[in-house]
């Protein structure tokens, strides 16, 4: 903003806020490398034993694999349905589709605790409690908003005349989708997929209610760990989670930049 410099107080508080946002997250890295048996900073040397323990304990590796499977499956569900829905709403673009779009955003607005208790009873009737199908459906449905948002944003920059031209020249709807619309909005779809994946990978509240013995995801394992025994393996798993999120976000930023250039 031309010639407008922030004052020193503004700068100081802004920096302090950023440190408050970032520092607590970075602290888990040294803690995960401690040579002690309990949560602490390394005393004599850095040690990778907690990572080793993490990757050789079946309870942890199972939880990681289960979470990865559920996250991938529910991301596919959310991306396919969310993308098609966003395209339909964009093309029709009338009052009723605005309502549909608002409906698709509900899972972000309504607290997951309310959904979780309703789903618990609902799945009990359908026999879906403690099943992978059940968790994938729940995570897929609650991942749809992220896809609808990113794909709608991508579509807002898409010239609708391209679509009319394709249809005018005789392309069918599936052909128009495949060759005209989807290639143009691919970065938006990838963004949506990334956010839907992170959403499922981190989701805990719904899983606490609808899963028990068979389905045991990573967030549940961490939750139990925080409530029962705090040990450095928790810090190691936390570091792995953060690394994964940061990598996915950097990928998203790189894609957005590419799209702009």
């Amino acid at each position: 903003m031309g010639g407008y410099r922030p004052g020193w107080l503004n700068g100081a508080v802004a920096w302090a806020t950023v440190i408050y946002l970032i520092l607590p997250i970075t602290i888990i890295l040294p803690v995960s490398l401690t040579d002690q048996r309990f949560l602490s900073l390394p005393v004599h040397a850095l040690s990778g034993e907690h990572y080793l323990r993490l990757l050789t304990t079946p309870a942890w590796t199972n939880a990681i694999l289960q979470s990865a499977f559920i996250a991938v499956a529910s991301t596919v569900l959310a991306v396919v349905l969310g993308t098609l829905c966003a395209i339909g709403c964009w093309r029709l673009s009338r009052r009723s589709t605005e309502l549909v779009r608002a409906l698709m955003l509900l899972p972000i607005i309504i607290p997951s605790i309310a959904y979780a208790i309703g789903l618990y009873r609902y799945f009990a009737k359908l026999g879906l409690l403690d099943s992978f199908t059940g968790v994938v459906i729940a995570h897929g449905v609650t991942g749809i908003p992220y896809v609808v948002i990113t794909v709608s944003t991508a579509l807002a920059a898409f010239d609708p005349r391209l679509e009319s031209a394709a249809r005018g020249m005789g392309a069918s709807l599936p052909q128009t989708l495949r060759w005209v619309i989807l290639p143009r909005i691919a970065p938006g779809i990838v963004s949506g997929a990334i956010f839907a994946f992170i959403h499922s990978w981190d989701e805990l509240v719904v899983v606490l209610f609808i899963a028990s013995r068979r389905v045991f995801t990573l967030p549940r394992k961490i939750w139990d760990g925080i409530n029962e025994n705090l040990d450095p393996a928790m810090a190691a798993v936390a570091v792995l989670l953060v690394a994964m999120t940061v990598l996915l976000l950097l990928l998203d930023l790189a894609l957005r930049r590419q799209r702009r250039d």
Partner: peptide, 12 residues
């Protein structure tokens, strides 16, 4: 970043 990870960091 996972809400759980952040809560864990604050507990630490």
């Amino acid at each position: 970043i996972s809400v759980l990870v952040r809560a864990f960091a604050w507990v630490t």
